[in-house]
Amino acid sequence: MTEREQINTYLTTLSRYLSRLDKGQADEVLREIESHIFDVIEATEQRGQVVDADQILQGFGSPRSLAQSYVEHVTQGTPPPEGFAAIGPVRRNVTKTLYYGMAVFGFSIAAALILTGFANLIVPDSVGVWSAAGGDSIVVGMVSDKVPPGDELTGFWYTPLAVILGYLLLRLTVSVMQVLKRQLA
């Protein structure tokens, strides 16, 4: 890549990261940085030195971080329109709903797995995993009907499988809830 191409690539990448600004502002930023780079190239050539694109671009940092320092204060400097103050409480409620939703979802499925796992020891015929709909689907759980919907796949192995899965799900739920709780605080 020539020095010129390298600089163009940098500016193109930067313009992509600046897309959160409106077009006029982004163009202005690009124009100024381009102008700076030309100034440096000119001064370097006047001194009879070789232009080193890496060295010129180094001071600007990565296109991403440079764009971020432009975009950050634009977004921070813009106060939200009136009425948007409600977003805070709404967001918190969403997190609360998520927190309790996650708890109900995770714990109930984990409990169902573990309970059916132990139930399999007592009533092995009613508990298990069945192949259904000609193998296209499976049925997991506890059935009252003595006629299962297909071939049972697991037999005794349902117990350790369900207990382990239930335990893992319990652990996962607890750790997800911890993360959500930090968000709530």
Binding site: V29, E32, G59, G61, L66, S69, Y70
Partner: peptide, 15 residues
């Protein structure tokens, strides 16, 4: 300071 510090700062001061 670097270019990456100066130019965004100038932009902010202008705003």
């Amino acid at each position: 300071i670097t270019e990456g510090t100066l130019y965004p700062l100038l932009d902010r001061l202008k705003r």
